[in-house]
Amino acid sequence: MIDLTRLYGAYATRLFADLGAEVIRVEPPGGGSDRRLPPATAGALAAGQGGVPFAFLALNKKSVVVDLTTPAGRDILKALVATAAVVVVEPEAEDGLLADILAVPGVRVVTVITPFGLTGPYAGFAASDLVVQALGGIVWLSGEPGKPPLKIAGEQSLFVASLYAAAATAIALWDAETRGAGHVVDVSAQECIAHSLQNAVQVFDLEGRVSTRGGEGTRDATESAFACQDGWVFLAAPLALQASWSGLLAWMKEEGFDGHAALTSAPWQDRPRRTTAAMKAEFKVLIERFLADKTKARCAAEALKRKIVMAPVASIADLGADPQLLFRRFFQTVAMPGIGSEVTIPGAPYRLSEPVWAIDRPAPRLGEHDAEVLGRMNQGHPGRADPAGRASA
Rank of each mutant, 00 (worst) to 15 (best):
M1H: 07
Y11I: 04
G20L: 02
V23S: 02
R35Q: 10
L37K: 00
A42V: 00
A46P: 01
A47Y: 13
A47S: 14
G48D: 03
G50V: 05
G50M: 03
F56E: 12
F56D: 11
L57Q: 13
V81Q: 03
A84Y: 13
A84T: 12
V86F: 06
V89D: 14
A93H: 08
V107P: 05
V109E: 12
V110M: 12
T111V: 03
V112Y: 09
T114H: 04
T119H: 09
G120H: 04
A126K: 14
A127G: 08
A127V: 03
D129W: 02
G136D: 02
V139C: 15
V139M: 15
I152W: 04
G154W: 14
A161P: 04
Y164D: 08
Y164I: 11
A165P: 01
A167F: 15
A167D: 10
L173V: 04
E177S: 04
Q190T: 08
Q190I: 04
E191N: 14
C192F: 08
I193Q: 07
V201Y: 07
Q202Y: 09
R213G: 03
T218H: 11
F226I: 00
Q229P: 06
F234P: 00
L239E: 02
A243T: 01
S244Q: 02
W245H: 10
S246V: 01
G247I: 07
L249N: 01
M252I: 05
D258S: 14
A261Y: 02
W268Q: 04
W268D: 02
R273L: 15
A278P: 01
M279D: 13
M279A: 15
E282L: 07
F283M: 01
I287M: 03
A292Q: 11
C299K: 00
E302N: 08
L304Q: 12
L304S: 08
L304M: 07
A317K: 09
D318H: 11
G320I: 00
P323E: 08
F327P: 00
P337H: 03
E342Q: 12
I345F: 05
A348W: 09
A348M: 11
Y350M: 15
Y350G: 00
R351T: 10
E354W: 07
V356K: 10
E368P: 03
V373R: 07
H381C: 10
A385E: 10
